[in-house]
Nucleic acid binder design. Structure first.
Lengths: 181, 181
DNA sequence: TGCAGATCGTTCGCAAGCTAAGGATAAACT
DNA sequence: AGTTTATCCTTAGCTTGCGAACGATCTGCA
């Protein structure tokens, strides 16, 4: 079962390019950009599914929940807005997930002493215990997942991805608006 | 507002490594693997959000819906199971999304003539019109999103990601089981 | 032919995630 | 001081997405 844009076999990939060009007729088409983007997406899904099934699921954590605990563990308590940005989540999403984590006693929410609008999130004892147990296993799996790459390649991958992320975040929007950092 | 694992500034990244090691004490830790994986995830999110906001949303398409239309457009009708795999979706997820696409007349479902269990999905006229209008714009944005990379780097990125995806898909599971290709 | 097991798609229940609207608090201006 | 405006978090409604359970269909074997 060949997966056209993901397959390792260069022939399969080239066939895919030919098929797409056939549909497009004479319209312009940047195949390399398509390959780069679709592979980013597929890799992210593969990695996430793997982690959720093998490491996080058995501990009752989602990817997002794990990320929240990890950030709080390493960098200490944070206000919700900043935490949402650190974790790459919308504020509303974070709010719901914090509810779950708070219910199970992994994190706590307290009012900011001088600004009643703000809320400070901190890791609780149970949360610390969980993240200290789960993170090492998570990191072991990260090693396995990137074991097909050499040390130089791993660094290169991260570097290239940072460029893409920065471009996506900083490119001006064609319509609508958004808060900037 | 520095984002520890994503930031372009190497100093910020190194500080992050130091902070994490401080929490871990003397436990082993593969920082490069962590960087590679977290950057995959962040890049995928950034790219997807961008596309949904600027290209897909205005057309009433989700990322998944777009992917389905694209696959059907290029490679023609497909059975649901194969389509799910091509699109990187679970069968149940695909089923629901096909319902939406069918309701709006973009795709059609028909029974396999010789095997009543199977269902064949095909692009309808409306779907073809949509994908032929949207895909060129989508591809233009892919070009923009990877414009920070040189031609060689784009290829290298795709290559490295294919390795990670293949590793994640093929690595044996520690628990549970899964159908293999 | 008839039953057992396999295969395939759909349905169901749930979590994650987004946006937009709402409500509380703080800041600014008159 | 009081009113408006801005800021921040939460809530509400929706879609996406997964896994498991279900029902329908096909295959194999007696």
């Amino acid at each position: 079962m060949p997966r056209p844009l993901i397959d390792d076999d260069p022939r399969v990939v080239l066939e895919a390019e030919r098929d797409i060009r056939a549909r497009l007729g004479d319209r312009q088409f940047d195949f390399d950009a398509l390959l780069a983007v679709s592979n980013i997406y597929r890799a992210a899904n593969a990695v996430r599914n793997r982690m959720e099934r093998e490491v996080l699921g058995p501990e009752g954590l989602s990817w997002g929940g794990f990320t929240i605990l990890f950030v709080l563990w390493v960098w200490g308590e944070r206000e919700t807005g900043q935490l949402a940005d650190d974790c790459g989540l919308a504020k509303g999403t974070l709010s719901g997930m914090l509810g779950t984590l708070e219910k199970t006693g992994l994190v706590s929410r307290t009012r900011h002493p001088e600004d009643g609008r703000r809320v400070i999130v901190a890791l609780e004892g149970g949360g610390r215990e969980v993240i200290e147990r789960v993170f090492p296993r998570f990191n072991e799996h990260e090693t396995k997942l990137t074991s097909g790459l050499g040390p130089r390649e791993r660094g290169e991958l991260a570097r290239l991805l940072r460029i893409v992320t920065a471009t996506a975040d900083d490119l001006p929007l064609v319509a609508g608006d958004r808060a900037k950092a």
